[in-house]
Structure formats: structure tokens, C-alpha cells
């Protein structure tokens, strides 16, 4: 009695160890079929848990993918609690599980068509990775193995599936303001040429006046007759031009206006005298 008592836990441990070491989930008779609705044609492939299919299967928009397998615990057909076919989008790692309907004997099946797939997987450009997960409670080692890849063929006539990425808080693309172009001037040579052309009109004007008989011969006479008013009048005209020049370079309007007023008053007072003298010359027939 004492012997059995002491040996029992050892035996229990041993069997547990053996069970743990040997018991593992797997599958047999795996097959994958893609049934086309239109043509009714099927393409069938054998699946093995050891190595995935070398080529990706393609799944059209009206096709149905059928997966059949027999789940086995340690070589015997049995129903696992978890029997999933997991499709993974390789770029984002997004996964969608499809539970298999399993019978007591371990025979399991699942059918997938486009309408079962979430839009993110439908929009995938790369083949989806499919793996089979078989596992259950207890000590048996679960199975999680890649079995095949499936390429989603979208209908060329239908609009491609799109989905809007959900808003996620994160940094946003940088924005740099595009400034309007600065105002541009023509080449300096051209500006200089036309500036000189404009400047050349002044000598041309004076020369043509002189050639038509223009002269300043009465200057001494005029100064002799009304020296103060002629000097002031002509000086005030020049002063007015100087006021304009100061306005252009530095003065503002409020500095300019009073000075202009003063100069204008001088022009009027001296002008009456000076122009009176000019009139007297005209009346004398000297103009």
C-alpha cells in the first residue's frame, strides 16, 4: 500500500510527461478547392501541415474557397475547440479569423467568398497568408501553421474596394508656404537705353528752340526793369520744383503743404509784377 502510494505520483508525472511530449494537434486529408460560380469549374489542391502550397491560389469575385480537413489529436480524429483559418494581410499584419465547422470525427470545413472578407483584406494588393490554427484545452500541443497564400482577384468591371483609413492622432505632413514671385525688372541695359533716350529729348528740345530763334536776349532788360520781382518769380518756380523733389525723397504731405502754400503766395505776388513787366514789353511791340 505504501509502495503504491509513493509510486502513484511518479507514475502520474511520467504519464503526464509522456502525454505532453507525444500529444499534439495536426490534420490530415487537407484539401483546398476554389469553385467558380460562373463556369462551375473547380481547382483542387492537396494541403499538408508540413509545408505550405508553393503557389498562391487566386480567388475571383464570384468564386468560393472551400477548405476541408480532418483535425487529429495524436493521429486520432478529434474535435478541437479552436479550429480557425486565419487570413493575414502581410503589409499591415491585419488578421481575420474564420472558424471551421468541425464534426465529432474531426472533419472540418469552411467556405470563404469575397463577401465574407473585411474590406481591408479585399483591398490587399499582395497575396493573403492563410494559416490553420488547431488547438484545444488540455495538454495537447496546438498547431498554428501556414498552409497557403490566396490572391484576391477583384472584378475589373466593378469599382475596386476602397476604405477610408480611420483618423489617428499623429504628426501631419509639413506645409511650407509658397511665396508669390517678387516683382521683376527688365534687363538694366534696356532700362538704361530708354532712360538715355528720354534724357536725349531735353537737348533736342532746347536745340530746336534755339534753331527756331529762341533766345534770352531780354533777360538784362527785364532784370533792369523789375529786378526783385523777376528774380523772386523765377526763383519761386524753381523752389516749387525743389519742394516736389523733397516730397519725393524725404518729406511727407504735411511738411510739403505749408511750404507749397508759402512758395505759391510768393509766386503770385512776384508774378503779378514780373508778368506785368512782360506785358509792358509786349505792348511796346518788343515781343
Amino acid at each position: 500500500m505504501r509502495f503504491t502510494q509513493s509510486i502513484a505520483p511518479v507514475l502520474l508525472l511520467l504519464t503526464a510527461g509522456v502525454a505532453q511530449a507525444a500529444s499534439a494537434w495536426g490534420f490530415d486529408d487537407g484539401s483546398l478547392a476554389v469553385v467558380a460560380k460562373k463556369s462551375g469549374g473547380t481547382s483542387k489542391e492537396k494541403l499538408s501541415q508540413k509545408a505550405p502550397l508553393s503557389k498562391p491560389v487566386s480567388l475571383g469575385s464570384t468564386d468560393t474557397l472551400k477548405l476541408l480537413l480532418t483535425a487529429k489529436d495524436n493521429g486520432k480524429g478529434k474535435r478541437p475547440h479552436q479550429a480557425f483559418l486565419v487570413l493575414q494581410e502581410p503589409e499591415s499584419g491585419l488578421e481575420a479569423p474564420f472558424p471551421l465547422t468541425v464534426k465529432e470525427s474531426g472533419k472540418a470545413a469552411v467556405q470563404i467568398s469575397h463577401k465574407d472578407l473585411p474590406v481591408q483584406l479585399l483591398a490587399a494588393t499582395k497575396p493573403l497568408k492563410a494559416s490553420v490554427v488547431l488547438a484545444s484545452f488540455g495538454s495537447a500541443q496546438g498547431l498554428n501553421t501556414p498552409v497557403f497564400e490566396v490572391k484576391i482577384e477583384t472584378d475589373a468591371n466593378a469599382p475596386p474596394p476602397t476604405y477610408e483609413k480611420p483618423l489617428r492622432y499623429g504628426k501631419q505632413p509639413e506645409i511650407h508656404h509658397t511665396f508669390g514671385a517678387d516683382p521683376k525688372s527688365p534687363p538694366k541695359v534696356i532700362s538704361l537705353f530708354f532712360a538715355l533716350a528720354v534724357a536725349a529729348t531735353l537737348p533736342a528740345l532746347f536745340i530746336s528752340w534755339v534753331s527756331l530763334g529762341g533766345n534770352l536776349n531780354h533777360l538784362s532788360k527785364a532784370i533792369g526793369a523789375a529786378p526783385l520781382s523777376h528774380a523772386t518769380f523765377f526763383g519761386s518756380i524753381m523752389a516749387m520744383e525743389f519742394v516736389f523733389f523733397m516730397y519725393y525723397t524725404s518729406w511727407n504731405l504735411f511738411q510739403v503743404l505749408p511750404v507749397m502754400g508759402a512758395v505759391a503766395a510768393i509766386t503770385v505776388f512776384s508774378g503779378t509784377k514780373a508778368l506785368g513787366e512782360v506785358q509792358s514789353r509786349r505792348l511796346a511791340g518788343e515781343r
Binding site: A195, L196, V198, A199, T201, L202, L205, F206, W209, G214, N215, L216, N217, H218, L219, A222, H230, F234, I237, M238, E241, F244, A274, V278, E286, R287
Partner: peptide, 21 residues
């Protein structure tokens, strides 16, 4: 330059108008 030429021309014209014989 045009402004400068106009100013000089105006002063010249004034002088000519008043003092030309």
C-alpha cells in the same frame, strides 16, 4: 528721367517765354 526732363523743360520754357527777344 522723364520727370527730370519735364522739370528742366518747364523751367527752360518759362525762361524762354519771359526773356526771349
Amino acid at each position: 528721367t522723364g520727370v527730370g526732363v519735364t522739370v528742366a523743360g518747364w523751367l527752360g520754357f518759362c525762361a524762354l517765354w519771359m526773356y526771349s527777344a
